[in-house]
Simulated scan of single mutants.
Amino acid sequence: MSHNKNQRQNVLKDFNFFNTKLNEYLNNLEKQMSDQFFYNSYIKDCIKDSLLVLARDSLNAKAKRIRPLLCSWIFRNYILAHDFSKEYRSLVKKDKSSLNKCLKVLFCIEILHCASLIIDDIEDGSLERRGQQALYLQYGIPNTLNTGTWMYFLAIKTLPKSLHSIAVNTLYDCHIGQALDLSNNNPKFIESLFFGSSEHRWEYYKKCAELKTARLLQFSIDCLEQILDIDKKTIIALKKLFMYYGLSFQMFDDIKNILPDLSGHKSYEDLNSGLRSSISLTFLDLLSSQEKRDAYNEFINSKYSEFMLSHNLYKYCLKECYNNAQNYLDQSSLLLDEISCHSESREYIHFILENPIENIRYSIANLIAESHISFNELQSSIL
Rank of each mutant, 00 (worst) to 15 (best):
H3F: 05
Q7T: 08
K13W: 07
F18H: 01
K21N: 08
E24D: 13
Y25H: 12
Y39R: 08
S41L: 10
K44R: 14
D45Y: 04
L52R: 03
A61E: 02
K64P: 03
R67D: 00
W73Y: 15
R89S: 15
S90I: 10
K94Q: 14
K101C: 13
L103P: 00
K104M: 12
K104F: 03
K104Q: 15
F107K: 04
C108L: 05
S116K: 07
D121W: 02
Y136E: 07
I141D: 07
L145T: 09
G148V: 07
M151K: 05
Y152W: 11
S162V: 11
S165Q: 12
S165D: 08
A167Q: 06
V168T: 11
N169I: 02
T170G: 00
I176K: 12
A179P: 03
S183D: 10
S192M: 09
Y204I: 04
K206F: 15
A214T: 05
I227E: 13
I230A: 07
L238C: 04
L241R: 09
P260M: 04
S263F: 04
S267C: 15
L271Y: 06
N272Y: 00
K292G: 02
F299M: 12
E306K: 15
S310L: 02
L334H: 09
H342N: 10
Y348V: 08
I349F: 01
P356I: 06
I357C: 03
I364S: 02
S374A: 04
L383F: 08
